[in-house]
């Protein structure tokens, strides 16, 4: 394959728009200096187009109430810091050459959140690989860490997303919980499947945005840490109910 990473496409813009929608709904909380998200991680950032868009214009975070609140109080600016991680090192170098060194973005080569403290981020973004593939195809994509890793999602296009949800649901230490007032959110782009709508009706995730891109129907959803934990237990029970041991062991293998 000649290309190092995919150019920005519908799912890229959907994640950016999803951030805007989510924080406009939560504008009042985002305005408050103690609960405003300040550490943002994008997992699978590739050439970091999403981070570049979010870091160069933080209006997505401020919303209408927030900016007037800050002005009225004469507050100093409180800008977030962004970390992008990806398994594709070449794509990260491509991003680094493009991004100004003064932008509040750092890039780390790693798999999902395995090399990062999962308890410190206020917001985790993941444009997950959502195309349903065989287990072999997913394993091959992850071994080669090339473009295929950007879309190969395993069973139901859910396997990689499930692994990240599992890493995200860690409980922060008591010291962090008391001082770290903001609640953490995971914003996920995935394929629009009935599976997720069942999660919404069970309150295991919040619906943020939906979009049709070509013949794909995509979805942005948000999970808090406690929802992530409930979601994970739920999917585990679903698999056990149908005695799907292959998928259950696949879920464990991804950890």
């Amino acid at each position: 394959m000649d290309e190092i990473s995919y150019p920005p496409s519908e799912d890229t813009y959907l994640l950016i728009d999803g951030c805007r929608s989510w924080f406009q709904e939560h504008g009042i909380r985002a305005a408050h200096p103690r609960t405003r998200p300040v550490l943002v991680l994008e997992v699978g950032c590739a050439a970091a187009f999403v981070l570049e868009a979010l870091a160069t214009d933080v209006a997505w975070l401020d919303g209408p109430q927030a900016s007037s609140h800050a002005e009225n109080c004469g507050l100093l600016p409180l800008l977030p810091f962004f970390i992008g991680s990806d398994v594709n090192l070449a794509a990260l170098y491509q991003a680094q050459r493009r991004l100004a060194a003064t932008l509040p973005i750092d890039l780390v080569c790693g798999s999902l959140m395995t090399a990062l403290r999962a308890d410190v981020f206020d917001l985790v973004l993941f444009n997950s690989p959502y195309v349903e593939t065989s287990a072999d195809e997913l394993a091959e994509a992850q071994r080669c860490r090339d473009l295929r890793a950007a879309w190969a999602g395993g069973w139901l296009g859910l396997q990689v997303a499930a692994a990240l949800i599992r890493q995200f649901m860690v409980t922060p230490t008591a010291a962090l919980t008391s001082e770290h007032h903001a609640s953490a959110w995971l914003l996920l782009v995935t394929q629009d499947r009935t599976w997720w709508h069942r999660a919404f009706s069970n309150q295991f995730a919040f619906f943020v945005k939906q979009r049709r891109a070509g013949d794909e129907r995509l979805l942005v959803l948000a999970l808090s840490r406690s929802q992530a934990s409930l979601w994970y237990k739920w999917i585990w029970q679903e698999l056990r109910a149908v005695d799907d041991s292959d998928r259950m062991s696949a879920l464990v293998d991804m950890e």
Binding site: V87, L89, L92, Y93, Q96, L107, C109, G110, R145
Partner: peptide, 10 residues
């Protein structure tokens, strides 16, 4: 070049 490689197999 400013990017740490934290892949387990690296």
């Amino acid at each position: 070049d400013g990017i740490p490689n934290l892949l387990a197999d690296a």
